[in-house]
């Protein structure tokens, strides 16, 4: 960062390529990322506010917000705990198979979502390996909102693990040695010493997992059952409207999804910027 500070004060740029890289970047971001969003607003401009409001507050659509937000929240919270456990085990302990477990953490990002979708649906259907075990016990997962949360948790678990892991690795050994030598129990020391330190990373990772879950489509539609008012996610509502050639309706719902995800992205970025500065003290 200090180097950048000198750039700011120094008036000459030594390195070439400013114009070229600026040109490519701005052109690309404008054409690929920003221009298409104007198409959405163009479509929305054809709607009166009353029509817009009627579409986005229709009963079936509101039910889909509830299902999506509720399942995403459950998935994010489960992942916060599970992801913290995995990050902790991967950083703190040595055991056979550790390298494999570490590699396995990225599977949900590497595996196409449709593949994850049909696999989870097959596993948790009543004839599947998991469904056969769970259904006699009274747990119905496929075609319920639990299945939706499960698929969301699967696709977003790496966000938590990979955000918390590096912060845990950077934690110096003296920190918990000091806590332990002062006689704290493991639980108290973890809560009082470790948790405050990794808290920002945990919140960021959980937030990213939540945003990802809100927009997920491929992994969910196969296991969801897609019953109106019960197990329809918002991304599917957009898809359904499109199949009915109701472009205005699809755009209105998409604008809600787009607004919420961009607002959350911005919030996470601001929050992350704040804790990165705090961690690096005066350097940042």
């Amino acid at each position: 960062m200090s180097q950048l500070a000198t750039w700011r004060t120094g008036s000459t740029r030594v390195l070439p390529g400013f114009g070229l890289s600026m040109g490519i970047s701005v052109l690309f971001i404008s054409l690929v990322l920003l221009l298409p969003i104007t198409g959405l607003f163009g479509q929305l401009a054809g709607l009166s506010f009353a029509e817009y409001w009627a579409i986005i507050t229709e009963g079936r659509v509101v039910a889909s917000y509830m299902v999506t937000i509720g399942a995403a929240a459950v998935a994010a919270l489960v992942n916060a705990v599970f992801g913290l456990l995995l990050a902790w085990v991967l950083v703190r302990y040595e055991f056979p198979g550790k390298r494999l477990l570490d590699a396995l953490m990225d599977l949900p990002f590497a595996l196409p979502t449709a593949v994850a979708g049909i696999t989870l649906a097959t596993l948790y259907a009543s004839s599947g390996w998991m469904g056969r075990l769970l259904e006699p016990l009274g747990f119905q997962i496929a075609y319920t909102w639990v299945g939706i949360a499960l698929a969301m948790a699967f696709t977003s678990i790496p966000f938590v693990v990979r955000t918390v892991q590096p912060v845990l690795e950077d934690l110096p050994a003296e920190v918990d040695e000091a806590a332990m030598s002062l006689g704290a129990t493991d639980g108290v020391a973890f809560r009082r010493v470790i948790l405050p330190h990794i808290w920002p990373a945990l919140v960021t990772g959980t937030g990213l997992a939540f945003v990802r879950s809100l927009g997920e489509f491929g992994a969910i539609i196969f296991i969801a059952g897609n019953m109106p008012y019960e197990t329809e996610i918002t991304a599917l509502m957009i898809f359904v409207k499109l199949q009915e050639y109701d472009y205005a309706g699809a755009s209105a719902i998409a604008s809600v999804v787009l607004f919420v995800s961009l607002a959350l992205l911005l919030a996470i970025n601001i929050w992350q910027g704040r804790f990165v500065r705090r961690l690096h003290g005066g350097k940042g």
Partner: peptide
Amino acid sequence: LQTLIDIPFAVSPVVAGLIYLLLYGRNGWI
């Protein structure tokens, strides 16, 4: 600029497809 490149990560894939369809589909201005 650094925040803008994260847009594709935050936008739902279905919404991403939709905005392209609206702009470049037969009814879009391009």
